[in-house]
């Protein structure tokens, strides 16, 4: 269909502002980042082309980048997996028409709308080794109970219970353990979001499927495994993509919990990027990190989508 002149003017005038802004401030800078990553530049003098030297440096020069990448993978492996499993579990529980489901749904979502800066500061307090540290406080109570129980058990000649194998209070938010300590925080703050996502998908499944399964005498677990899970597969994949991207891009938590000065033991990709560019003025190196971050996001999205497209079920 050919548009009239008037319509052409309309379409162009409506598309142009967004197109221009997006091109100038998203698409163009993305290409620039690629070019920066091939240069050696301190942000002031004339940049020098160095080819793939920056990428070579990422892996060869020091092991900072590799360590940071490893930390992102740790976050993904532990934080991502547990978030996914826990949110799926909660969604399945609420899907069975629990009374007060709205209350749980709304409340579980709370941490997701709170500023990540506030959440990181709050968790520093929760992990604290001072009187504020609830987590250390609870562990100390448990430890004391275990030790006293062991005293009784040994009096009776019974085998001992395992005790917490480290000294309390434990510096959870210290540089050395920071990455592992962020894992529970990630689970705490994102489970609600993914639960809402999966629950919405589950509610689209026709009730008749479950009725038929009930007539055939299927247990709750088999219904979940054979009906719910296959039918929300697409949304599950999307959730997985979101989680992977989120763990790759993580910045705020490390930055805040490390008082804006992460060490090698606590760096993630985004903080390496920031520190290289804005405190060491090594723009090329920082941009190479950014480009690799993009490549990782891109590949994991593509891979996950490809894997899920195979057998989408229509109903």
């Amino acid at each position: 269909m050919k548009m009239r002149k008037e319509q052409q003017v309309f379409v162009v005038s409506f598309l142009a502002p967004a197109f221009f802004l997006y091109t100038a401030f998203v698409a163009f800078p993305s290409v620039r980042a690629l070019l920066y990553s091939l240069q050696k530049w301190d942000g002031l003098s004339i940049p020098e082309w160095v080819g793939l030297r920056n990428f070579y440096d990422l892996f060869g020069d020091s092991d900072l980048f590799v360590a940071a990448l490893q930390h992102n993978l740790i976050l993904m492996a532990f934080g991502g997996c547990f978030t996914l499993l826990l949110s799926l579990f909660f969604a399945a529980l609420l899907h069975r028409r629990v009374r007060g489901a709205t209350l749980f749904r709304v409340t579980f979502f709370f941490p997701n709308v709170i500023s990540s800066v506030a959440i990181s500061l709050l968790w520093v307090l929760l992990y604290s080794t001072t009187d504020f540290g609830v987590i250390n406080g609870c562990l100390e109570l448990i430890q004391r109970a275990l030790v006293s129980a062991n005293g009784h058990l040994s009096a009776w000649g019974l085998p001992q219970l395992p005790v917490i194998p480290f000294d309390l209070p434990f510096p959870f938010a210290g540089t050395k353990y920071l990455i592992y300590s962020i894992v529970p925080m990630i689970i705490w703050m994102s489970t609600g979001f993914y639960m809402v996502l999966f629950l919405a998908a589950m509610e689209n499944i026709p009730e008749t499927f479950y009725e038929a399964a009930t007539l055939d005498g299927a247990t709750e677990f088999r219904k979940f495994w054979h009906i719910t899970l296959p039918l929300i597969r697409e949304v599950l994949t999307v959730g997985l993509v979101f989680l992977v991207i989120g763990c790759l891009k993580l910045f705020d938590a490390v930055w805040i919990m490390e008082n804006q000065w992460p060490q090698k033991e606590s760096h993630v990709l985004a903080t390496v990027l920031y520190q290289k560019v804005f405190t060491e003025y090594n723009v090329g190196y920082g941009s190479a990190v950014a480009v690799l971050l993009f490549v990782l996001v891109f590949l994991s999205t593509l891979l996950t989508l490809r894997l899920s497209r195979k057998e989408a079920i229509e109903y």
């Binding site: 920066y36 991207i245 891009k249």
Partner: peptide, 24 residues
């Protein structure tokens, strides 16, 4: 094509455009 061009932005992490934008 234009729609997909806009959508491709969903894949771009903010960190990628951060540094060039700063100098731009």
């Amino acid at each position: 094509a234009i729609f997909l061009y806009f959508l491709s932005g969903l894949m771009i992490p903010a960190q990628l455009v951060l540094v060039p934008l700063f100098f731009q």
